[in-house]
């Protein structure tokens, strides 16, 4: 292991371990780090130099793929963009666990197949026109330009949501936010989100917006979605046909 004089902090990692057929436990690793590098770097070094059996998910290392979400001291973080300085200090302990509310594959890696299925079911478009949209309004920037949507399907919001903790059927904040894209709903999407397991199940805990690393603001989008659903229902009751 190379000695790096920039690694000025010593951090104690307590990492959740779970292999098939064995009880879950925590392993401790001492790692020298630079306070301004990212938690994922520390985890990768643990794998490279201390324990090759550690299983964890990662791909892009720059917050576009959404693979490296984990709990850091109980709080949802995207570890490739979370610095040590932002969560602890020299000599501090970091408890690293897999995201909540997803099946654990092994150690820190979780299976997000279910979330991807649901995103697919609500037809969230991964590439959108470059419009800037927040709870304060919609501002069209460059309609002729396309970009990848803000949501990176990292699952942090689903992990933080108290309703997702108690219900596997609840669609989840990421998916509801995904359905909120501009445009009218197809019938099957409407059935999914306008249901008791859809937009009406949210209880406004706001944890989803708080932990989102990508400016999606799912809490606002779920409320906006409710408005759309109510309008859609009213229009139907009054017999107004939707232009599709």
């Amino acid at each position: 292991m190379t000695e790096n004089k920039k690694y000025t902090w010593n951090i104690i990692f307590k990492i959740f371990r779970k292999k098939a057929g064995q009880p879950a436990h925590y392993d401790q690793f001492d790692v020298a780090v630079n306070p301004d590098e990212y938690i994922l770097d520390g985890i990768e070094r643990i794998w490279a130099y201390q324990d090759r059996s550690l299983v964890f998910s990662h791909a892009c290392h720059h917050s576009t793929c959404g693979a490296c979400g984990m709990l850091v001291n109980g709080e949802e973080k995207l570890t490739c963009i979370t610095t040590f300085r932002s969560v602890t200090r020299n000599g501090g302990t970091l408890r690293i666990e897999p995201l909540r509310n997803f099946p654990v594959i092994s150690d820190l890696a979780v299976d997000m197949t279910g979330m991807f299925e649901r995103m697919h079911a609500v037809s969230h478009r991964p590439v959108i026109a470059d419009t800037f949209e927040t709870s304060r309004g919609r501002k069209k920037e460059r309609e002729d330009l396309l970009r990848l949507a803000d949501c990176i399907e990292c699952g942090l919001c689903i992990s933080a949501c108290p309703i997702s903790a108690t219900s596997a059927d609840y669609i989840g904040p990421a998916v509801l936010a995904g359905a909120q894209q501009p445009g009218t709903f197809g019938e099957n999407v409407l059935n999914i989100v306008d249901s008791e397991d859809g937009a009406w199940r949210c209880h406004s805990a706001y944890e989803c917006t708080r932990v989102c690393p990508s400016n999606v603001d799912p809490a606002w989008r779920i409320m906006d979605l409710r408005k759309k659903l109510v309008l859609t229902r009213v229009k139907r009751m009054m017999g107004i046909k939707e232009k599709t």
């Binding site: 998910s57 990662h58 791909a59 892009c60 290392h61 576009t64 793929c65 693979a67 890696a109």
Partner: peptide, 14 residues
């Protein structure tokens, strides 16, 4: 040995 594209490919400039 890891998840999809966890090596060079994942970290491409894009």
């Amino acid at each position: 040995r890891g998840p999809l594209v966890n090596g060079t490919s994942g970290r491409t400039h894009g």
